[in-house]
Design a protein around this nucleic acid. Sequence first.
DNA 1: CGTCACCATGACAACGATGACATGCCTCAA
DNA 2: TTGAGGCATGTCATCGTTGTCATGGTGACG
Lengths: 355, 355
Amino acid sequence: MTSAKEPILRDVAAMASVSIKTASRVLNDDPRVAPATRENVRAAMLELGYRPDPAARSLRAGRDLSVGVVVENIGDVFVAALVARIEARLSDAGYQVLITSSHRDPLRERAIVQDFQQRRCAGVIVMPSSETSLVGLRLGTMPVVFVDRVGEFPGSRSVVSDDYALARLATQHLIDHGHRRIAILSDSQKVPTTRDRHAGFQRAMADAGHPVDRALVRDECLDESFVRNAVAELFALETPPTALVATNTRLSLGAVPALHLVQRTETALLAFGDFPMAESLTPAVTVIDHSPHRLGQVAADTLLDRLRGDGTSVETSPIVVPAQLIARGSGELPPRPTAGDSRASVTVDTAGGHT
Amino acid sequence: MTSAKEPILRDVAAMASVSIKTASRVLNDDPRVAPATRENVRAAMLELGYRPDPAARSLRAGRDLSVGVVVENIGDVFVAALVARIEARLSDAGYQVLITSSHRDPLRERAIVQDFQQRRCAGVIVMPSSETSLVGLRLGTMPVVFVDRVGEFPGSRSVVSDDYALARLATQHLIDHGHRRIAILSDSQKVPTTRDRHAGFQRAMADAGHPVDRALVRDECLDESFVRNAVAELFALETPPTALVATNTRLSLGAVPALHLVQRTETALLAFGDFPMAESLTPAVTVIDHSPHRLGQVAADTLLDRLRGDGTSVETSPIVVPAQLIARGSGELPPRPTAGDSRASVTVDTAGGHT
DNA sequence: CGTCACCATGACAACGATGACATGCCTCAA
DNA sequence: TTGAGGCATGTCATCGTTGTCATGGTGACG
């Protein structure tokens, strides 16, 4: 029968006939250990299957091989993809990943980060629900990386897409295809990313000399049901929009069924965030692919850089991760003469599939 | 200026003029403390903003307010939804959630769980990549709950859907709509869930007296690209299938574009796992909704029960979470005479179909 | 009135590791 | 030969908390 308890450093030391401290040195790659001794200790560790106790280490050393990740909601497809990449990178680098959802509550977010600090996390990655949610927190030397949205914190770094430019691009794309009455769906403008996307939208419209009808600006869409309402209302207008910009993946996923519901699939749609079925829909959905994988990858790498102590670079400007417009059809639909509320000639999607 | 350091129990004790031990007693709701003292200590804690150090606690007490979660891949939509619910429940209950992806490597899975134990996690929830991946591990009293798939471990509990019955139901549904040549897409049969779904499929076919063409059984689909290949091959057959069962969410998400690609959207499709666009596709996709939310909820609750020490119930039989078939169109398509590539060799099946 | 049980509280060690500092040995230069 | 200096290693205290056991005071009961 094998021993019932996990081996501890003392056991290793005993087996290698050295002091605990020497064993600890080997564990921490301290250079001041004789090669022979090192080998002995290593062998003992291997034989006993020794693995250091994270709690003890964390307590004594004040640091811990874990990284905290705060996101809005791990169930969101965009977020899940983002987190998947982050987790893969950090986990390969030997870190344990602690994930908590903030449910877009800035106070909760603050509390979570504080808790991470207390757990001596080596660093945190935050998808901030408001850019100032961490301001004033005393986090010591724990590095902070914001992802997807710009956040504010001394010494932090943000990894984002160029929301302003992308929104401008998206809107311009619709304008290029002849649209003037373009609606925009977004969540709360409290989120910095959202604000930037609105700004890009406004700019493109202004550049084209098109007025922005405030009735077409819907910035209170928190989830799919809000989108459904918003879309219903948009098409109840006397002059409904001929095109729609959905400013995040969640809303994009809501917009498609919503358009189906009001039988307005001929409406041009430009959606932020690629999603699995985008090219199989009728029409296929044109998206701005601000890849969550790339964002996650870069965020994780940025944090790892800071953790490796390259504190030399005190660069704090946001890192912009490239994104692209993938034209698939929905964004290239021409504007349809506003048939008012005529439901007669509405040709819905052709059965049997497109392609 | 506020104090630079986090307050510790000693500070609390000092402020309340009691010993550290008494403060500790208050912290742990030890009944042997005078009410007045308790109040004093509580007040001091509040005033100092004291929060116990998890590392020290964990080290000394041997337990920790964290729960480990091992899943196949946090980026998978089904998994993300599952984890979201788990995280919400446990986090509300005061636990920190550690999430790690196994990438369906049983050895990795084993190692992760071992690491969780060493971190003194209060319990673990595992989505096992093979039912025996934990067998033989010495985990002490750490409770284990398996989710989505039945796992094997002494004292553990599994929370699953009734895969066998659901697959049978799905297949029967297609048979009821006139199909005989039904293909099944699945991932590796090493996964217990997958095996059960195959069994249900076989059973329904057998019950109907339909032969199962082995060429229509594709059990090596690990991701979308495999699905694409498999579908392409299926429709290159002399007699292609008239219906398709996709046995998990990931494959369902792959099957739709794959059918589009080969221009076979008239093929009946019954998909495991509901997904956001299912009702907006053409045709809308009929699914077996084995809700990840419900699974997550029940798994979390089951673990919490065990953690609250209801060790009395030594029940170990799997908990079956209900699921339902949501008919949306794709699963109700009639079989179409195989017109595709076999131009002459028209087969039977007179089931008249509207296209 | 004495003894005992009980209760609130405290002193001390310990969990498993690492930091600060000490020690002993060996080498090399004067 | 000897002292300085470097290097390998060891001793001890410590991180913040909780378990074990001890203590002193109070009330109850014989």
